[in-house]
Simulated scan of single mutants.
Amino acid sequence: MPRNLMQLKILLPFKVFAQKQGVSRIVAKTTQGFIGFLPHRLDCAVALTPGILTYEDKTDGEVFIAVDEGILVKTGQDILVSVRGAVGGSNLTTLHEAVRQDFLTEDEQERNIRFALAKLESGFIKRFVELQHG
């Protein structure tokens, strides 16, 4: 790989979300604001906040990825991003809709989990009361 290009790897808790070679630039949202990465930038590690990560390569052009909180580490030409969640899109409008759908699905799953936990708790309390009075 030419020295003026980077390798990007985006990790989720249980899988590799994306792995790209030939990346010319990356922009990510950090706790201190947006930060850009070019191939000759000094090595560093930054905390990411939920937002849009943008990278550019010759094959795909400019690519947008919505990421959750996490960390980005640059060492040499390698950039490793580790986040809790990520959603990709070809443009910002498509990405916005994908993120909205992802959050709606997540909200529904959370409601289902809360409902199941409430049923478990009420069943536990009911049995506990029965043991106390039985």
Rank of each mutant, 00 (worst) to 15 (best):
Pro2His: 05
Pro13Ala: 15
Arg25Leu: 13
Ile26Glu: 07
Ile26Cys: 06
Val27Phe: 02
Val27Pro: 03
Val27Cys: 14
Thr30Arg: 08
Ile35Thr: 15
Ile35Pro: 01
Gly36Glu: 10
Gly36Val: 06
Pro39Tyr: 00
Arg41Lys: 14
Leu42Phe: 09
Asp43Ala: 01
Asp43Ile: 02
Val46Arg: 15
Pro50Ile: 09
Tyr55Glu: 04
Tyr55Met: 08
Tyr55Cys: 03
Thr59Gly: 07
Gly61Tyr: 06
Glu62Trp: 01
Glu62Gly: 00
Val63Leu: 11
Ala66Asn: 07
Asp68Ile: 01
Glu69Lys: 11
Gly70His: 07
Leu72Tyr: 00
Leu72Lys: 05
Leu80Pro: 01
Val81Gly: 06
Val83Arg: 02
Arg84Lys: 14
Arg84Ala: 13
Gly85Ala: 15
Ala86Gln: 09
Gly88Gln: 12
Gly88Cys: 03
Gly89Val: 03
Thr93Gly: 00
His96Cys: 06
His96Ile: 01
Ala98Thr: 05
Val99Ser: 04
Asp102Ala: 15
Phe103Glu: 10
Leu104Val: 09
Asn112Phe: 07
Arg114Ser: 14
Arg114Lys: 14
Arg114Glu: 15
Phe115Gln: 12
Ala118Trp: 01
Glu121Ala: 13
Gly123Pro: 00
Arg127His: 10
Arg127Ile: 10
Arg127Ala: 14
Arg127Val: 10
Phe128Ser: 10
Phe128Arg: 13
Glu130Arg: 05
